[in-house]
C-alpha cells in the first residue's frame, strides 16, 4: 500500500545564487522554511509544485519536501532537508549568516 501523503512544502534552489528557497502561501519565495506554505492535500501539493516549476526565472529543481508540524512551523523530517534549511556544518555560511531570511525581494524574483 502506498504511504499516505505527508505534509510537505515546495522547495527549490534559486536560479541566481542557488540558495534554498520555499514557496509561501502568498505565492512568494522565501529563504526561510518557517515561511513556507504547508501542503496537506496531495492533489493541491501537485498543483503548487507545477506552479513552482512554471517559474524557471526563479526556481531550479523544485520538488516537494516532507515536513513535520511544530509550534514554530514546519520542520524537516530528513537530515538532508535540515542541512538545506540550515547551511553547511563546517562554516557559518549560507543561511547562517548574510542575507536575512524572509521573502525574496521582488527584484530577486524577477531579475
Amino acid at each position: 500500500m502506498p504511504k499516505p501523503f505527508q505534509p510537505s512544502v515546495v522547495t527549490a534552489n534559486h536560479l541566481l545564487d542557488g540558495d534554498v528557497i520555499y514557496q509561501t502561501a502568498a505565492d512568494e519565495w522565501s529563504r526561510n522554511l518557517s515561511d513556507a506554505e504547508v501542503l496537506t492535500d496531495e492533489a493541491d501539493a501537485q498543483i503548487r509544485l507545477l506552479h513552482a516549476q512554471s517559474q524557471p526565472a526563479v526556481t531550479v529543481g523544485a520538488y516537494l519536501a516532507e515536513v513535520a508540524l511544530s509550534v514554530e512551523g514546519p520542520e524537516p523530517t530528513h537530515f538532508r532537508e535540515e542541512f538545506r534549511k540550515t547551511g553547511p556544518s563546517n562554516y557559518a555560511h549560507g543561511k547562517q549568516v548574510g542575507a536575512a531570511p524572509g521573502p525574496l525581494e521582488a527584484s530577486e524574483e524577477t531579475i
Partner: peptide, 25 residues
C-alpha cells in the same frame, strides 16, 4: 537568466563549463 533557455537546456551547457548546482549554492 533572460528566460530564453530552460534549465533542462542550460544544465548540460553549464556542466560542460564546470558549473554545478549543489545543496546550498
Amino acid at each position: 537568466i533572460d528566460g530564453s533557455l530552460t534549465e533542462d537546456e542550460f544544465k548540460p551547457l553549464r556542466l560542460m563549463n564546470g558549473l554545478y548546482l549543489q545543496l546550498h549554492a
